[in-house]
Design a protein around this nucleic acid. Structure first.
Lengths: 210, 210
DNA sequence: GCTCAAGTGGACGGTGCCGTCCACTTACCA
DNA sequence: TGGTAAGTGGACGGCACCGTCCACTTGAGC
């Protein structure tokens, strides 16, 4: 690969990350190309489909995500491990707009590594749940599929003015409801969310590019 | 209004409701028109913008939504009223795909009735929260903006295979975390959600029309 | 420096949706 | 029954995005 090609590839990924954060994953390819100071052809040469680009951009986050699972399993305190993994994944989801799409696109892929990776995550989390329940810190009627429920619910917060704060508050609330005992650590501060603040994002969805 | 015009109007609204439930609110206007057996011009004559149609289609649900607020305030048990309003609105949101969009579009409108209606809802809910907190059944650090947080989180469940079940489970969990005491009623059953099941809806978002 | 393959940019055809316009049709009333 | 205004359908121009194609440029090895 030639030096200029490598440079351009990097610029595309950077521009895409920026564009995704600002406008969501539906931002037109041409916008990304323009921001990278590159023609569309260059973009398509490096990344044949939008998904390829998305996955490349969020590769780091996906790694962090899977690392969270393994780290949680290594935590001697089952409950803390359980909390960490949920907090971590939700924080990642909230931190970067479009990560959810990347997450969902990456996991159901037929590519061996991703499929295996997902299965590994599933098994790991199931083990985590079992351990935390046996330790009496996680409510017995928690079901592993509740993780997906949380993730989906949390993903919607990406359109709010401050996704990180909103996600923290939601996760704080949900973790409270997951714990078996009634001991409640202090909650992250209220979001101050207002319905009116949500409107722009909805409109934005229809005109993603500037 | 002529008889045939009224008939066509009704057919448009019915077709739109059907189309929204099936494909989401982003379904092309032409698709709705075709399903209603009408030309696009007829549709645009009755409903100048997409929002007009959306709002008409979900008018009943919006009414039910505001009724939930007033009924909750009339409930002698503050906690039960509080739960009812959250359960009700979330159920409405989950029941019909696109209702969230309607909800968000309807409320920030400048039209007098809607603006007033929203303010009324806000005040009503704030009063509800205060009452439930004074009764000692709602945790003191609950903030009215948490309602919006719940609504946004809940709205994401519309893309899951069984939105009603998912919503019930989520609301059950959140209400558990809202209550001041540790008494927990049985939770709705787990959803069995799987990441793979979420994929189709994401793809669907890009090709809304058949 | 020269060569040439790798790399590039932008033009272009294709597609799908929007919203308007206009010639035609039809319900209602005298 | 006939006039007429309200009502109608579909064609059409405009727009935005997609993804490809091709003539031009440029980096790197000799």
């Amino acid at each position: 690969m030639r030096a200029d090609a490598r440079r351009n590839r990097r610029r595309i990924v950077d521009a895409a990350r920026e564009a995704y954060a600002q406008h969501g994953v539906d931002v037109p390819m041409a916008t990304i190309a323009r921001a990278a100071g590159v023609g569309v052809a260059t973009l398509y040469r490096r990344f044949p489909t939008r998904d390829h680009l998305v996955r490349e951009v969020f590769a780091d986050q996906l790694d962090a995500c899977t690392r969270a699972f393994t780290e949680a399993l290594e935590d001697p305190d089952p409950w803390r491990g359980f909390c960490r993994v949920i907090e971590k994944i939700c924080a990642l989801q909230a931190a970067e707009r479009g990560f959810t799409a990347a997450f969902l696109h990456a996991f159901p892929d037929t590519a061996a590594d991703h499929a295996e990776l997902r299965l590994q995550g599933e098994r790991g989390f199931a083990a985590l749940v079992r351990r935390a329940q046996q330790a009496g810190s996680l409510r017995p009627d928690f079901h592993p599929s509740d993780l997906v429920l949380v993730l989906v619910a949390n993903s919607a917060l990406g359109t709010t003015p401050d996704p990180a704060a909103a996600s923290q508050r939601l996760v704080g609330l949900l973790l409270d409801s997951f714990r078996a005992d009634a001991v409640r650590p202090p909650l992250p501060p209220p979001t101050g969310l207002d319905l009116r603040q949500l409107h722009p994002s909805t409109a934005d969805r229809r005109t993603p590019a500037p």
